[in-house]
C-alpha cells in the first residue's frame, strides 16, 4: 500500500503504476455531472473558473448528507464515464488526478498521458467506509447544485487504486482477461 500526499507531485504520479493500491492524504476537490458541465462551458468561453484546478485531484462524488456527529455523509465514487466529455479540457487546464469508478474513453486516456495525470478508482458502493477517511468538508462553489456542489475534502488515508497510470496502462483492460474462463 503506497501512501501519497495531495496535491499530487509530478514525481509521485510518474511512480504510480496501474494496479497500485494507494492511501491519499491531503486535499482534493469534488465535482460530478452538473459541476463539470458548468466548468467545461466556462473553459470553452475562456472565462475564469470559480475553483482553481491547477495541480488538483478531483473526486467524482455526490455525497449523502452528514448525520450528526459525523463531519461528512457517505461519499462513494460515481461512474466516471459521464465526465469523459469534460475531463480532457479540465486536464489540459491543469487538473492532474481524477477519482471515480468505471471505464474511461480513449480521449480521457490520451489526456492523462498528454498531461502526465492519473486516474484512481475508489470502491463503488463503499460510501460509508470511504467517508471515514474524509475529515473536513468545505464548500467551494455551486452551492445551488446541492449534492453536486464543488467541495474541498481534507482526507487522511483515503483508499483507492490506480486504474490508469500516466503511461496509459489501464487495469480495467488488463486484469479482467486474466480471470476470464469463458473459453475453458
Amino acid at each position: 500500500m503506497k501512501k501519497i500526499t495531495l496535491p499530487l507531485k509530478d514525481e509521485d504520479i510518474k511512480n504510480l503504476k496501474a494496479g497500485d493500491s494507494v492511501l491519499l492524504t491531503g486535499t482534493m476537490i469534488t465535482g460530478r455531472d452538473a459541476a463539470h458541465k458548468r466548468l467545461f462551458e466556462l473553459i470553452e468561453k475562456g472565462e475564469k473558473l470559480p475553483v482553481d484546478i491547477k495541480g488538483e485531484t478531483i473526486y467524482y462524488v455526490g455525497p449523502a448528507p452528514a448525520k450528526p456527529p459525523y463531519a461528512v455523509g457517505p461519499a462513494g465514487p460515481t461512474s466516471s464515464y459521464r465526465m469523459d466529455k469534460y475531463a480532457p479540457a479540465l486536464m489540459d487546464n491543469g487538473l492532474k488526478g481524477m477519482i471515480g469508478k468505471g471505464a474511461r474513453n480513449q480521449d480521457v486516456i490520451d489526456a492523462i498521458v498528454r498531461n502526465g495525470g492519473v486516474y484512481f478508482a475508489a470502491i463503488g458502493g463503499a460510501a460509508a467506509l470511504i467517508a471515514k477517511s474524509i475529515k473536513i468538508e468545505e464548500l467551494i462553489c455551486y452551492e445551488d447544485l446541492g449534492t453536486e456542489a464543488v467541495r474541498r475534502y481534507t482526507v487522511e488515508d483515503f483508499p483507492c487504486i490506480v486504474v490508469i497510470d500516466s503511461k496509459g496502462n489501464n487495469i480495467y483492460q488488463t486484469e479482467p482477461p486474466k480471470y476470464n474462463t469463458e473459453n475453458l
Binding site: 469508478k101 468505471g102 471505464a103 478508482a121 470502491i123 463503488g124 487504486i161 486504474v163 487495469i171 480495467y172 486484469e175 479482467p176 482477461p177 486474466k178 480471470y179 476470464n180 474462463t181 469463458e182 475453458l184
Partner: peptide, 10 residues
C-alpha cells in the same frame, strides 16, 4: 466467467 470481478478490477 467473464472476469470483471469485484469493482471491475478482475
Amino acid at each position: 466467467k467473464m472476469g470483471f470481478g469485484p469493482a471491475g478490477l478482475g
